[in-house]
């Protein structure tokens, strides 16, 4: 009933339908934020109405957190911690990209996989966080320690996805390249890598996500800067508003990284529909 009515109304209203449709689309999007808004309202209610003056410090109301975010942003402190965290994530990620050639080698040559696979399978189930004590002893407090932990978080998802992507490359694509005169390296570079790329990107997305989570844990205990450090440092002085600002920043940035990858993928790989959503 409703869709029919819409279709009939549109041509009649002509030009004026345009801004109206835009408004409708906006409303539809806003509706998706309903639960989020409700949760923030509950937060506000609990903080303002349920907690009293002495316990409110444990859960400051949303507006106090916003004010804290403004303070931290203006003083440059938030930016400083975010910058350090992002830098570590990036450095570790670049190192973790070595998983791509390794994964291609493992997926292409049985001899390589036979040797590497047992090592990987032993190391993979160890959570990155379990490495933190050793990492601190090896690298001390600071960037290298953090980057090592993030690297561990990033590396395995990228590797596992690359290997399975390479193994899933259609035989006929490789055969087509071979009978068109491509040599081994041209096949790996021009065909296997490209054909496996959608899945490699999936690995990168997962890897960056896991790395971002590992980063915060690594910074909680072994850093003098970064968002994890900010959270833990604020806890010691009971600035729960700063703690929440740090947490929210981690969430928003993690989300933004994932979104950015999706957009890049859609731009660079229009042929890959699997990731278009």
């Amino acid at each position: 009933m409703r869709p029919g009515a819409h279709a009939a109304a549109h041509p009649a209203s002509g030009e004026r339908a345009q801004p109206l449709a835009g408004l409708q689309a906006l409303l539809r999007r806003a509706r998706r934020l309903g639960l989020l808004a409700a949760l923030i309202a509950v937060w506000w209610y609990v903080s303002e109405r349920v907690l009293d003056r002495s316990t409110r410090a444990l859960l400051p109301p949303p507006q106090a957190v916003l004010r804290a975010a403004w303070d931290l942003t203006r003083s440059g402190e938030l930016w400083h911690h975010l910058h350090d965290s992002l830098k570590r994530e990036l450095v570790a990620f670049l190192w973790a990209c070595t998983a791509i050639p390794l994964g291609i080698a493992m997926g292409s040559w049985k001899a390589v996989e036979e040797q590497v696979d047992p090592v990987i399978e032993m190391l993979r189930p160890v959570p990155p966080l379990a490495w933190i004590p050793l990492s601190i002893l090896w690298f001390g407090i600071g960037d290298t320690q953090n980057e090592f932990i993030i690297f561990l978080g990033c590396f395995f998802p990228i590797l596992v996805n690359t290997v399975s992507g390479v193994k899933g490359v259609e035989t006929n694509l490789v055969r087509a390249a071979r009978c068109l005169g491509a040599n081994v390296w041209q096949i790996l570079w021009r065909v296997v890598l490209r054909a496996a790329l959608p899945q490699i990107v999936t690995g990168v997305r997962v890897g960056l996500g896991v790395g971002w989570m590992a980063l915060v844990a690594a910074e909680l205990v072994g850093a003098n800067s970064g968002l994890g450090f900010l959270i833990n440092d604020s806890r010691t002085i009971l600035r729960t508003d700063y703690v929440i600002v740090g947490m929210a920043t981690i969430g928003v940035v993690g989300f933004a990284i994932d979104r950015a990858i999706r957009i890049v993928v859609r731009r660079l790989m229009p042929w890959s529909q699997a990731l278009a959503r």
Binding site: E170, N172, L173, R175, A176, A177, R178, C179, L180, G181, A182, N183, Q186, R190, V191, R194, A195, L197, M269, W271, S272
Partner: peptide, 30 residues
């Protein structure tokens, strides 16, 4: 295999990341 005996496959086996032009040019690049 060699380009002297090129193959047309039942499932086409086109490179999905290449345009029509690029697919056709692939063997020439090689």
């Amino acid at each position: 295999p060699t380009w002297r005996r090129s193959v047309v496959f039942q499932d086409y086996a086109l490179f999905p990341w290449m345009t029509v032009e690029e697919n056709i040019a692939f063997g020439l690049e090689m």
